[in-house]
Simulated scan of single mutants.
Amino acid sequence: MTVIYQTTFTKVGNFARDALDEGMLITFKQGAPADLEDYCFIHSHGVLESDIRPGDIAEFDSVDYPVTAVGEVASFNMKELGHVTWRFDGAENAEYPGTIHVRGTIPSAVKEGSVLRIKRGE
């Protein structure tokens, strides 16, 4: 597998974990607008080597989550802002343009220092 993106979470917003109860994890790179930062998992932001697509693997803290759908602006938003909404529902069609859907149990232990990787099979 090739890693096409990697970042480390540096801050967990005050209300970021609330979205996990609804099956979502919202990311934003460091420097997020203050009114959004409280609702996001803030990260150091890496370089997205290739657009994210179904079949890729999102890895949160060494747990793999197969990507099932990617919204039409999700890769652009990740590349430019580090901002996407991860949905842990396995949907095959993206609910919103900035959403990435994955299959798996909602990660409850993401914290400062946790790593997100996006991997692609060869």
Rank of each mutant, 00 (worst) to 15 (best):
L116Y: 00
Q30M: 07
V102Y: 02
V3K: 09
E49D: 11
A94G: 01
A69M: 07
P97C: 03
N14M: 09
A32R: 06
N93S: 15
P107M: 06
L116F: 12
P54W: 01
L36D: 05
T8K: 15
D61I: 00
T8L: 06
I52F: 03
P54G: 02
A32D: 07
L116V: 07
D18C: 10
Q6C: 09
A34W: 15
A109K: 11
L25T: 04
V115W: 01
N77Q: 04
L81M: 14
T7F: 02
Y39W: 14
T27D: 03
T2P: 01
Y65H: 05
F15E: 14
V3S: 03
D56H: 01
A109Q: 08
R87K: 08
R53V: 13
T68I: 07
A34M: 11
P107L: 08
M1P: 04
N77G: 14
A109D: 15
F41R: 08
G71I: 06
K119M: 13
G55A: 00
L25S: 07
I4K: 07
L20C: 11
F9C: 05
S108L: 11
R17H: 01
D61G: 06
R17P: 04
G23I: 10
V73A: 12
L20S: 11
A94F: 09
V84L: 13
L81H: 11
N93H: 03
I52E: 04
A109R: 14
A94L: 05
R117W: 02
R117Y: 05
T7H: 10
P66M: 00
A91R: 08
H43N: 03
T8D: 10
E37T: 14
G104A: 00
E49H: 09
T99C: 09
P107E: 01
D56I: 01
N93L: 03
D38M: 11
E122V: 08
G55P: 03
L20R: 08
L20F: 14
I26W: 04
T68E: 00
P97G: 09
K29C: 10
K29W: 13
I4L: 02
E22R: 15
P66W: 04
D51A: 05
I100Q: 06
K111H: 14
G98I: 10
E59N: 07
A69E: 06
T68L: 02
D35V: 15
G13V: 09
I52D: 00
G82H: 09
G98E: 03
H43W: 12
K11D: 15
I26L: 10
D38F: 10
A19R: 06
Y65Q: 09
D89N: 14
G113I: 04
I100D: 00
T8H: 09
R120K: 12
A19D: 15
T105F: 10
L81E: 05
K111M: 13
A74Q: 10
D61H: 11
A16F: 04
A16L: 08
V67R: 00
F15Q: 12
W86S: 04
V63Y: 02
D38L: 15
N14P: 13
